[in-house]
Design a protein around this nucleic acid. Structure first.
Lengths: 341, 341
DNA sequence: TTGTACGCGTTATCAC
DNA sequence: GTGATAACGCGTACAA
């Protein structure tokens, strides 16, 4: 028994006035007499009227929802970003439509299509791991719908972006390990087709060469999951090539490595020091607490959304793409520093 | 330079035919000649036409988006649920509009208003901790928009819901602790104005009385955050009333307790055993790995969305509200079982 | 097989 | 001040 929603027409009929008058009264138009305005407001409340934003958007050729495409919501970092996005959007009267790509390129393309079909006012994207071609994203640009990347941008595609200073943060993290007296530093890297993975590795290499340390190939492998990190540590121990520190591409990787080390009876950080990346919830809680780089996900979401809204409102019409770099903060906890007793 | 989107009219003009013909051709209407259909499809592809779902929804008085209101996205459990919701919705051609209440009642009411204004086809809600009155939710029911609760329902409001068997799961968790030989079992409870908090406490009490153990008030306190659990353990140790096991309302609480115990030099589970609730990512990774109850968030999201879609499509029109109970699985890891060496 | 006319809910524009 | 009209993009009875 779904009751048909109350419309402006209903109010008009009720008061025996025209729909346009009602519309004006509701919009607080100064040309309306105080008493009709009063009446309209009362009847609106009485009938439980709700403006149909969809119809309004159709009429005004502008929508009040922004689309978001992320790899996976269940990642703490991304859920933080979404929180930031949601907050800004909410305060500006926008709603958020979220699509997950599950790190699949074709699904991402589908998401783009869906969001455009829904007439979103703008799109925020963090590209999937798999994404190589960017046809679907170029399509967004061509359609005229503002596009802002966050965290993971599409290289070569000119667009606003909010990213981390991955290279520098990785550099600082590695340097920190050097300063703590480590010299046999390994790196468990992320996928190298992803800019963030590449940049972090570069930062790592930069720090090593800066310290005059030559790269040992077997210490720099791709391992960006809990399981891979676990088996990678096991492999290193079997080969006898044991590092005295590991800089990991993310926190989960770090925890996988820690688990292996614990089972091998190696003390952390005395035997092997660890630094992760992301500052997930568990980094504070792990045993020992994990040193890591805080990416400020919430802040990134806020910045990205503000940037997007600027474009939507054409405040910066025609201006070239902006890149906002959010500095990652190295948080030194106990996996990388020998604490004095 | 936002190009105006290509519409059916544009295609019609291009082919010098009427918009209705184009509309029919795009919908694969059998009354259209094969060649015009062919032409329309070609031109549509050429001009990069995208159907305006919003306009279509307005015309058909039905939308293809469903609204979700959750306390906080950053909670692992909720992000899992959203993943499940998203998956089903996506496959059925729906998009998802997500609002966070931040556990605030007024914000939740706002979310309801927003979603209804956006003409969502249905709403999924997990009520905020703060919510006491349910006027805004009753409004949803009155509006005729289908409503399904997940995890946290509004007591007294007849509606479909997908919930956990909190009481039973808590009973089983506590019983497990009893079977492991513990008898001085404490409970760090959740807010008692929330059904889930109350039910879990009831399950705990049931298990105790079933075993002929009297409740000790000082062992059953409200502590549902990492910090509160930490200080609660400290308090218990100072008072000298030390339990030999703690059943916690959630995982974070469990980890807070574990941290305190570690600092106090108490072995887990030998000194004090721990069981949490939720099976968050860190429960597998904690040291030692945490025994907990898996709530199957993803599955709950899937079920809730299926239920909602049924209502939206009036498959079960007029049928009384359905309650789907998702059984929580006790996962015994190392914080509650003395492992043989 | 295709075109015409109208309506979905809203609002901008032009009348009065 | 207020009303009538048209239009946003789409779909569909009805007419041709």
């Amino acid at each position: 028994m779904s009751t048909a929603p109350v419309t402006i027409k209903d109010i008009a009929r009720y008061l025996k006035i025209s729909p346009s008058t009602v519309s004006r009264a509701l919009k607080d138009n100064p040309e309306i007499s105080r008493e009709t305005k009063q009446q309209v407001l009362e009847v609106a409340a009485l009938l439980d009227y709700r403006p149909n934003i969809v119809a309004r958007g159709l009429k005004n050729r502008q929508s009040s929802t922004i689309g978001v495409i992320i790899p996976e919501i269940v990642h703490y970092f991304f859920s933080q970003v979404i929180s930031g996005i949601e907050e800004v959007a909410y305060n500006e009267g926008y709603t958020v439509m979220i699509c997950q790509s599950n790190d699949k390129s074709d699904r991402e393309a589908n998401n783009v299509r869906t969001l455009l079909a829904h007439q979103v006012a703008g799109i925020l994207v963090s590209v999937s791991k798999e994404t190589a071609g960017f046809k679907h994203l170029e399509e967004v640009k061509r359609s005229g719908v503002p596009l802002v990347f966050f965290d993971r941008a599409a290289p070569g595609l000119m667009a606003d972006q909010v990213i981390n200073d991955n290279r520098d943060a990785a550099f600082r993290a590695t340097t920190h390990l050097l300063e703590e007296g480590h010299s046999r530093i390994a790196h468990f890297a992320g996928p190298q087709n992803l800019t963030i993975g590449k940049e972090r590795k570069e930062g790592y290499l930069l720090a090593l060469t800066g310290a005059g340390i030559a790269l040992r190939e077997e210490w720099c492998t791709e391992a960006d999951t809990f399981e891979k990190a676990y088996s990678e540590v096991m492999r290193l121990y079997q080969s006898g090539n044991i590092p005295d520190a590991i800089f990991c591409n993310n926190d989960l990787t770090a925890l996988g490595a820690m688990k292996a080390l614990r089972e091998l009876g190696t003390e952390i950080p005395e035997g092997v020091a660890i630094v992760g990346f992301s500052n997930g919830i568990f980094s504070e809680i792990s045993e020992p607490p994990l040193s890591t780089v805080d990416q400020h996900g919430y802040e990134m979401g806020v910045q990205a959304t503000r940037l997007l809204l600027k474009r939507i409102n054409s405040v910066n019409k025609g201006e070239p793409p902006v890149t906002i770099v959010v500095r990652g903060d190295l948080i030194v906890r106990e996996t990388s520093r020998i604490m004095p007793d």
